[in-house]
Simulated scan of single mutants.
Amino acid sequence: MTRRLPFWPTLIVALAVATMIGLGTWQLQRAKWKEGLLARYAVARTLPVMAFPAVPVEPETLLFRRATGYCLQVTGWSAKAGRNMAGESGWRHIAACRTGGGEGPGMQADMGWSNNPANPAFKGGPVTGIITEDRQKNLILVAESPAAGLQRSLPPDPKDIPNDHRMYAVQWFSFAAIALVIYAVALRKRLRA
């Protein structure tokens, strides 16, 4: 008498294992992409100082570049959580700047850090720093020289960007292997019965 594998449970496990292997493979592809991106960011730090862009651009092409811009007038302030060069928690003071001509997006400039969220006295002027972005993908120029009364904000560093994709791939492949082992044990018990 031949014993057949149960169709539906075998199909479900096969589909689940194929999905997990696919996700693991995708994470390996993401790891390779992230490594290239981080290498590009490391090179960006060594490039010459550029002018802060006057028109909207893809943030990925400018992150970690040194740039200079001119804040003609501060049109607003925001205080966001951040750290200073000593690693202390406090407030980053971000100036929304008018850059002239009424064209383009203007400029967001991180003018420094303090433990007080009150707006600094900075009214405008030249700003040189490193380009980063906020969660909405808006470019921010992190000033190398803070405004009066502020300390320098911790500048962005590509080393702070995690690349955990290989670890996620190992997890997905492990889940697939565990699912196969559990199913094999269940089948063995069923066939014995």
Rank of each mutant, 00 (worst) to 15 (best):
L5Q: 08
P6Q: 03
P6A: 05
F7N: 02
W8L: 15
W8Q: 09
P9T: 08
P9S: 06
L11N: 03
V13F: 09
V13R: 09
L15Q: 08
A16R: 08
V17T: 12
M20K: 07
I21N: 07
L23S: 09
T25L: 12
Q27K: 06
Q27E: 06
Q27G: 09
A31D: 13
K34F: 06
E35L: 12
G36A: 12
G36H: 05
L38M: 14
L38Y: 04
A39D: 13
A42K: 10
V43K: 14
A44F: 00
M50T: 05
A51C: 01
A51E: 14
V55E: 15
V55F: 05
V55N: 06
V57N: 01
V57M: 02
E60G: 07
T61A: 14
L63W: 04
F64W: 08
R65P: 04
T68K: 12
G69Y: 02
C71S: 10
C71Y: 05
L72P: 00
G76F: 04
A79C: 08
N84C: 00
N84Q: 03
A86V: 04
G87Q: 03
S89V: 02
G90D: 03
H93K: 10
H93P: 07
I94M: 05
A95I: 10
A95E: 13
T99F: 09
G101C: 15
G102S: 15
E103Y: 04
E103H: 15
P105T: 11
G106S: 13
G106F: 09
M107Y: 12
D110R: 07
D110K: 10
M111C: 06
M111I: 14
G112K: 04
W113C: 06
S114L: 02
N115K: 15
N115M: 07
P117C: 06
P117R: 08
A118T: 14
P120Y: 04
A121N: 11
A121R: 13
F122H: 12
K123W: 12
K123R: 15
G124D: 15
G124C: 14
P126D: 14
I131S: 02
T132C: 09
K137I: 01
L139V: 12
I140K: 02
I140C: 00
V142W: 02
V142E: 00
E144S: 08
E144V: 02
S145K: 11
A147E: 07
A147H: 05
G149P: 04
L154H: 03
P156L: 06
P158W: 03
D160L: 11
I161L: 15
N163V: 02
R166D: 12
R166Y: 08
M167F: 07
M167A: 14
Y168F: 10
Y168M: 13
A169M: 10
V170L: 15
Q171G: 12
F175E: 11
F175Y: 14
A176H: 04
I178G: 07
A179I: 10
A179K: 10
L180A: 07
L180R: 03
V185T: 00
A186H: 04
K189I: 01
R190Q: 03
L191S: 00
L191Y: 09
A193L: 05
